[in-house]
Design a protein around this nucleic acid. Sequence first.
DNA 1: TCCAAGGTCCTTTTT
DNA 2: GGACCTTGGA
Length: 768
Amino acid sequence: MNQPMELDLLAQLNPSQRQAVEHFTGPLLVVAGAGSGKTRALTYRLANLVLQHRVDPENILAVTFTNKAAREMRDRVERLFADYLAQKLHNQPYGSLGLDVQTKLRSRVYHTYTKPLWVGTFHSLCAKILRFDIEKYQDERGRRWQKNFSIFDESDVQSLFKQIVLKDLNLDEKKFDPKSVRYAVSNAKNQGQTPEDLLREQPNYRGRVIAEVYSAYQGKLAENNALDFDDLIWLPVQLFRQNQQILDYWHRRFCHILVDEYQDTNRTQYELVRLLVTNGQQRVQDWQNRSIFVVGDADQSIYSFRLADFTILLEFQDQFGDRLPDDDTRTMVKLEENYRSTENILQVANHLIENNTERIDKVLRATRGAGEAIFCYKAADEVDEAQFVAEKIVTLVQQNPDLDWGSFAVLYRTNAQSRALEEALLGRIPYLIVGGLKFYDRKEIKDTLAYLRVLLNPADTVSLLRIINVPKRGIGKTTIESLLAASQELGIPLWEIISDEAAAATLAGRAAKSIHQLVKLLQKWQGEVETTSALDILEGILEESGYRADLQNQGTDEAQDRLENLEELFNAVSQFQETNEDISLAGFLANASLASELDNLQEGQQAVSLMTLHAAKGLEFPVVFLVGLEQGLLPHARSINDIRALEEERRLCYVGITRAREQLFLSHATQRRLWGDREPAIASQFLAELPPELITSNIKRQSKPLKQNATASQDWQIGDLIMHNAFGVGEVTHIFGSGQKISLAIHFPQMGKKIIDPKIAQLRKVDR
DNA sequence: TCCAAGGTCCTTTTT
DNA sequence: GGACCTTGGA
């Protein structure tokens, strides 16, 4: 048969990569350090399955954690297939073909290879499975869903919890904060627990209440024919457990499963993968024509707050593999050569991560030269820090013809840090904020999508309530309350009430006419859902609901912004229709609920990237700025007193450092605005963990951030910065008493003012 | 029913 | 410094 795979895919690989790429059937764990060619191993191996081993693309499932990663994998695989076909059909590289030939080839690649391939996030793939099979599922209380279900976002979910906790169950807000209850329920789903499981595990009062809320919440979701993000994964798992026939089907369908960022899987996601691979058995009996291929790096596990559990990766050998020691195993391969960063950057990264206790030993070997020293900038405050970043970028671009704006990334711990940076860059340097304020979270977009969701799923009362009086049509609170009361009383969705003309007329009184008009509008477009394109429906709704006219009448700058965002929504719909060959409203809505960002619409554009460390995972840049290296920020205040959380912060820092190819800049400020107030800040403990000989700085000597204990009264002065074990960093504002009998009033940014006896509390003086 | 003013809490990170 | 909620007046 054809040999070009041999030539193209395997030639430039090192032996470990080659082993990964050539892997055909059976289990394989690829431990892939940062910059070790992980994506390459994944995509080449996928292409190799199809081209070399003749696996039907339909039988392959490739799972990622972010849409960005999914998109990239799809693009890169597509490119490989295109290269292959170009060579086979035209005997020349894809790049040297004429434009029209390229287009033709791409279309062929799409239809033969990438369209039948399932590549996506856990959430999008599960949503797809549910659109086939959700109607065969019922939960432990017999609740059912239909395949036109809505996917509720975090704010929809929050308001449901508020309603249940504060109104329906009338619980004490102090004891059962809706947010913490919501968190507990989410955790349960991510650990694969039903309300009953939760009750069994926590038979105390709190457990009982949370289980009750959990169950009530699922009831509410079912009433709305809606699911939350966690359900998208948790439901298929339960469905597969209760219905072997359905599992059989998907097990047979997905013979080859690839999982990227395996260290980020949680127990429920793992269970999903396990069910698909084993068909529900203890072990896989027959690996013929079947494989599980996972790629991950425990040092880059940064999602434990979402219940990601990197021990799942550590257990792979035990669950699927041959259980042999590392030297003999045939089911694990380590990629340890780093092709991305200079040696200096790598050493700094290695040095830092060695401070973690919870990890598997893995060496990152440099393949490149030493490179430049790492520079650490000590800034006066966040404005000065941002100024430094901006000026450095300008200088580097002027000095270095290889660099353009797109070569730079500025990484930070929290989204709030982006503002100061934006202000420094604005007007001087083009920049792009990745993530952050999400397009689909904007009010006008959410309103519009709520209209569309109601068309598709009239039972979605949450969305219906969102738009029932938007734009204002005189349907006030009292009217809505009485309609809702009737809906509760009769146990039917709000939509059924308002679309019953007689019922609406009696209940709504003065507002009856408005309701009737709204119902007529929605009914008209409900009739079009199957036959009309998403784009036309969107246009019709915005026009006929008066939503657009309302914004136009306002005439404010803000309204203008909103109108422009709606324009963007049109672009998003038409882009979706083009790339997915799917013009249905259902298709677009499913996609929109799961899309987290409308960024890299224009990939590779010339702009500095601003993003959180979490968003940066998987990316690389020639020059990286890692800002805000301060106690309380990185490591974050909430993680500072818990060793495991602290280690995750360290991994986060490690992820940031390893994004850099050529140059790395670190920075911290001695003062920072927090919630509008100026607060003192001290350098991150992580800075002290870096090898000083590799770091240069704008201050003479890298001072150790923590000084020895000091307890005698003469050691304290107003204005001193101290570190308290529980409260973090604070500033001394008063000293009471004298000699050995003193107390200190200390202001902590997060906690406010505390009176503390320095002989009792563990206090350390720290440098400014 | 609507709107403006003032108060409260807040922020980790994301599908 | 800002999103979100409650409140009181028109």
